[in-house]
């Protein structure tokens, strides 16, 4: 597999995720986009690991997977906690961070 292609694909998916994060108001989709960016990074790592014949990249992916899983679990728990209080999930309505 040509490494440039793999990295280019990863870059493309990452950019899509980044755009999605800023575009979507639905917190669930927002999370999906974040995951998408994680996955893009993983793809680049796996590609380079194969390219150089080293296993370190895949080890890193393993660690990233674990972190991503934890992040999703915590994030969704927070979402549900917020929903319990507000009955509303539009992120634009949760604007208590305003200075």
């Amino acid at each position: 597999m040509p490494i440039e292609f793999t990295l280019g694909l990863a870059a493309a998916i990452f950019s899509v995720g980044a755009a999605g994060v800023t575009f979507r108001r639905d917190p669930l989709v927002l999370f999906m986009c974040v995951e998408m960016m994680f996955n893009a990074a993983n793809l680049a790592l796996v590609g380079l690991s194969g390219y150089f014949g080293l296993l370190d990249g895949q080890t890193m992916v393993f660690l990233v997977l674990a972190v991503a899983a934890a992040e999703v679990a915590v994030g969704l728990a927070i979402l549900i906690a917020i929903f319990r209080v507000r009955q509303d999930v539009d992120v634009d309505h949760v604007s208590e961070l305003r200075g």
């Binding site: 493309a12 950019s15 980044a18 755009a19 800023t22 575009f23």
Partner: peptide
């Protein structure tokens, strides 16, 4: 968002 995504890409 599009501009940002495209810029990043």
């Amino acid at each position: 968002s599009l501009a940002l995504g495209l810029g990043l890409a």
